[in-house]
Write a protein that binds this DNA or RNA. Structure first.
Lengths: 200, 200
DNA sequence: AATTAGTTGTACTGATCGGTACAGTGAGCC
DNA sequence: GGCTCACTGTACCGATCAGTACAACTAATT
């Protein structure tokens, strides 16, 4: 049987419940640490549903990666309209707020996956693409600043965006294992200072 | 039976072979993706040896974490004698060289683990401690620069060391998923520039 | 009411998981 | 030579893994 897209509201609800449960569990226990059975128990779905909507566990993980990107971007909405230095500050604040609220671990769900997915030929490109999408929003925002004359004309928005992403990921990794947001806070502060070095 | 430290040369060889095989496999496939059986097949040891030297898989992973730290520090030997700006440049070069040689993936073995180990109460503190050890060598080196009058007296070596670690980890994570060392190279360049902002 | 496609429940499979049991073998020490 | 203890080989265990088989149900369409 091939994997199916849900074509009725009922089916969509079931599929979403499975992905939601998987996303939550994998955020905490990792991919390999999250069995299909656990996902189904948590979502209340049965095995036939899971294999009706996904060809195998790998495809479920692919859906989870998409879900993570949605969550991440949804948690930093200002990234879609970045156009000023004040917006950039708001952006770092929104990033911090996510993990201040957090009941769960301080961590980037994509970053958590990155290590485990490793060189899985199907999944690694999806994680890569998710990061690139995230970064491209940032780059677009920085380009907007440049167009507004708030960023030096000879600065490279794409390069600056990558530098910011690096800081975010490094900061989150350290903050994760230290259970201490300070590491992320400092990293964001330094990144912002670095960007301001290109202020017009 | 309790876990035993090897007390004969033969035992030590066996134990090392197990840890080596585990370290190699887990670097590529992750912890959960590396079964005890695979480790034993790769090391040529039998199950009784494994459970003679380690109480369980978790303890094996603990030994692997120690091994990773040894490997990491061994690959950047200048970190033990850091005392000048030239040494810092050498340090970034040594960091890059490890992954230029690499047959395996571009990645920090500890960083790979960080996501998966997550909040495992036994293992997470070990990863944390390994990072702190690594960072403390860096901090000591920066302190040496300060004592030599090459770093501003009001700079905080510990804080600068953490900033550098953040860049290294973020750069490695991005470089990993992109299969492109450039991300690490840029991150190190920016980090070094940041540090030089505190040059005396 | 009959048809049809989308969806679901239950029961199962073979493989692999981490871990154990236990009978040995190796080498140093008296 | 014989004792001791660290070490090793092999066979096994119950649990859990991802994935399958197949019949039954739901709901919209006709």
């Amino acid at each position: 049987m091939e994997a199916q897209a849900a074509s009725t509201p009922r089916g969509k609800r079931t599929r979403d419940a499975i992905v939601d449960a998987a996303a939550g569990l994998m955020y905490v226990d990792g991919v390999a640490g999250t069995s299909v059975d656990k996902v189904l128990a948590a979502s209340g779905a049965g095995k036939s549903q899971m294999y009706h909507y996904f060809k195998n566990k790998e495809q479920l993980v692919a859906a989870v990666i998409d879900r993570y990107l949605e969550q991440i971007l949804g948690n930093q909405p200002v990234i879609f309209t970045l156009a000023s230095w004040a917006d950039l500050e708001t952006w770092t604040e929104q990033l911090l707020d996510v993990h201040r609220r957090a009941g769960g671990p301080i961590a980037c769900p994509l970053g958590n996956l990155a290590g485990e997915v490793g060189d899985n030929p199907k999944l690694a490109p999806l994680v890569d693409q998710a990061y690139r999408t995230w970064e491209s929003h940032l780059a677009r925002g920085l380009k907007a600043l440049q167009d507004n004359g708030e960023l030096a004309a000879d600065a490279d928005p794409a390069r600056l965006a990558q530098a910011a992403m690096t800081s975010v990921q490094g900061g989150l990794l350290l903050a994760h294992i230290r259970h201490d947001l300070t590491a992320l806070q400092d990293a964001l502060g330094i990144a912002l200072a670095y960007l301001r070095g290109f202020k017009r």
